[in-house]
Design a binder for these strands. Structure first.
Lengths: 239, 239
DNA sequence: GTCCGGCCGCTTGTATACTAGTATCCACTG
DNA sequence: CAGTGGATACTAGTATACAAGCGGCCGGAC
């Protein structure tokens, strides 16, 4: 790994005086999680608290705070006196994450289908059009952000804002898989079609159809697992 | 609050040499969460990292680790340069927690109803009998532990061990409510009856009945909210 | 050549020192 | 007497020093 600070999206723009009074923990957590999900920190890779601190321009303390949260997410494994390692992809963890995501999002979308109002649906429609534009120019990064916003909007529509953060933390394992499978050609447009199916069902206040469409869509990622495992066998756990 | 270490279940029994090499963070987290759920640390109460460290016999560092996790759970609110406070009960947070719990446990119990085997059901049956004994002698503490085990067993039966930790973290807000409402007389036996209804439905592999029974059971706690709010108005948020 | 043992460098966990920002209280001013 | 400004005693965030354990490496013995 290189030396400087490879944090995505640019680091603190406001001057170089690093010592803010607001905790940098959440920032580091998001940055490291993103690096892990993008496999820029590869599964199995060893992480050094001191080295991460140096590269990120902070001391071990906030780094440890971020690593602690990543450990709660099971994205890293901390072995005392030995080291901290990026978790390998565990089929069980992926299955569990899928279960949690389906349970939360599908339950939420049922409520959302009942509560959906014109304004929210207009926003979601706008998001869908932006997805189509991103797909047209094969802009995977933009699409992935829009995808996240889409799912989050549907979830928030249920009126339970605390659900998404929980879902997002559980979802990391799936994101990591998806990140490795996004090379497929027709993958993106298929996804957008599925999104529109869910959106349409919500718009006409049909909870059953929305749930079915969403569940089907969510399971698409799982079907990529065997291919990915074949491409990157060292990214997976032994058993 | 008193001076010494009021940690429930006794503190480290092995000698007094505190500096183990295994992190005490999870231990402190569980201990503090328990104190908050039991309202021994009252909603709105100010927590001092230094004082907690002194009372628990550790320095600020592991205390901060535990408080960070509690902050993720929204059980404490950290205001930089001001202080750390036990979160007041937020109706929105309770509603969100209820949503998450219903989504996870009800989805899990459907799978569990399909997978249930003789041995697991025998264990659950044993747990139910223990619950009845605990209720018979009005042993609330024991019952609450058994109740937790019951729900966890049903959840784990689904074959997704990672679900319960997520559910448990989200569930804290509900536990705090329940802790305040457990004074009701017939409450306990009603609960055990509801448990048995769920268990029976799972035993005969009836996902629909199991889900309905569980959902109904889970919503029982919510009905206590108005009473509790009347008894402890200062435990709740302003709006 | 092979195997065993001790040293050394690394790791995480913990304690402590330091920084900067907030609120409170009290003295001083109008 | 009322109101305001500043010293002060806190707070959390961060950096750093220290403790203790594990693993690899190297040298020596057989």
């Amino acid at each position: 790994m290189a030396e400087p600070i490879p944090i995505r999206g640019g680091d603190a723009p406001e001057g170089s005086s690093r010592p803010r009074r607001t905790s940098s923990g959440p920032y580091l957590y998001a940055a490291l999680r993103d690096l892990i999900v993008r496999a820029e920190l590869a599964p199995g890779e060893r992480l050094s608290e001191t080295e991460l601190g140096d590269r990120l321009g902070v001391s071990r303390t906030p780094v440890r705070e971020a690593l602690g949260r990543l450990r709660d997410d099971r994205l890293v494994e901390v072995r005392p006196q030995i080291g901290t390692f990026v978790s390998r992809i565990s089929p069980q963890a992926v299955s569990d994450a899928q279960f949690i995501r389906e349970a939360l999002e599908c339950t939420a979308v049922r409520v959302s289908a009942e509560l959906a109002d014109e304004e929210s649906m207009a926003q979601i429609e706008e998001n869908l059009r932006a997805q189509e534009r991103a797909v047209a120019r094969t802009d995977i990064d933009s699409w992935q952000l829009l995808d996240d916003t889409f799912h989050r909007s549907l979830c928030d529509l249920s009126g339970h804002p605390a659900v998404w953060p929980v879902n997002e933390r559980a979802k990391s394992h799936l994101n990591r898989l998806r990140r490795l499978s996004l090379t497929m050609p027709d993958y993106l447009s298929t996804m957008v079609d599925a999104h529109r199916a869910v959106s349409d069902a919500v718009a006409i206040h049909d909870p059953d159809a929305a749930e079915v469409a969403l569940r089907e869509h969510l399971r698409a990622v799982l079907r990529e697992v065997p291919k990915i495992r074949e491409q990157h066998p060292d990214y997976f756990e032994e058993p």
